[in-house]
């Protein structure tokens, strides 16, 4: 989330803010639907991914590994590793939301980058506004993400051979877009470049899918020791 962007003061503003985040992020759903079809999943499976997994980067990773010829285990591991950050978001949101039972289950399901990000951006407005931001954004993204996944999947299905329509380049381009949002410092850019070089170097030596998961080692190696504050 861009914490420097303008923060809404009123609930009307919060609604518009949540909606614009939901719509922007939801549009990625088109790319996911298309990527999923290109990887060989059906329209139904693509839609179930967005309904049930509902965490974009993990979904892209799962279909991406399958598309590159990786095993099911490699696809599931890559997706699961990418989803671990949602546990940290849940930890931050649970004391704020104080939900129980079914509501808590739904809250957990919509605990993603955007719902957490919007909630945290409302700290100065108080807990009630933070809660509102979480629910509005979480449910908004859920709506648009699923709608656009269906559109993307149906569209890609009509097109046929993925390569002849360039869809196989759309997937890495979508990953690059997701990555781009996260590269907020030179240190993080360096980690990204190091991960890319590492993946290139080990690709010829490992079965498909494994180089992707192995890139986690770069994160472990860099994050193991505390570092000086970076630019």
């Amino acid at each position: 989330m861009d914490k420097t962007s303008e923060m809404p003061k009123l609930n009307g503003k919060l609604l518009r803010y949540s909606l614009s985040v939901s719509l922007t992020v939801g549009l990625y759903g088109i790319a996911f639907g298309a990527a999923s079809i290109a990887a060989g999943f059906s329209v139904l499976q693509s839609c179930l991914f967005s309904l049930l997994t509902f965490t974009g980067a993990s979904q892209f990773a799962a279909v991406g590994v399958v598309a590159s010829g990786g095993t099911a285990a490699a696809a599931i591991s890559a997706a699961t590793l990418l989803g671990t950050r949602n546990a940290l978001y849940g930890m931050q949101m649970a004391p704020l939301l104080e939900n129980r039972g079914l509501t808590k289950l739904i809250a957990a399901h919509i605990t993603i980058d955007e719902s957490t990000g919007v909630a945290l951006s409302q700290v100065e407005e108080g807990n009630a506004t933070m809660r509102q931001g979480f629910w509005l954004t979480g449910l908004g993204v859920f709506l648009f993400w699923n709608l656009f996944t269906l559109l993307g999947a149906l569209g890609a299905k009509q097109l046929g051979t993925p390569a002849s329509w360039g869809l196989d380049a759309g997937v890495p381009a979508a990953f690059l877009g997701l990555l781009w949002l996260r590269l907020t410092s030179n240190f993080l850019r360096l980690v990204a470049v190091a991960s890319m070089v590492f993946t290139l170097l080990i690709t010829p030596w490992l079965p498909s899918g494994l180089p992707i998961i192995s890139a986690t080692l770069v994160a472990v190696a860099v994050g193991w020791n505390e570092r000086e504050s970076t630019t």
Binding site: G64, L81, L82, R85, F175, V191, A192, F198, I212, I213
Partner: peptide, 10 residues
């Protein structure tokens, strides 16, 4: 750092 490493690899 995990999302950055994995997305870069992807």
């Amino acid at each position: 750092l995990v999302p950055i490493a994995l997305l870069s690899a992807l």
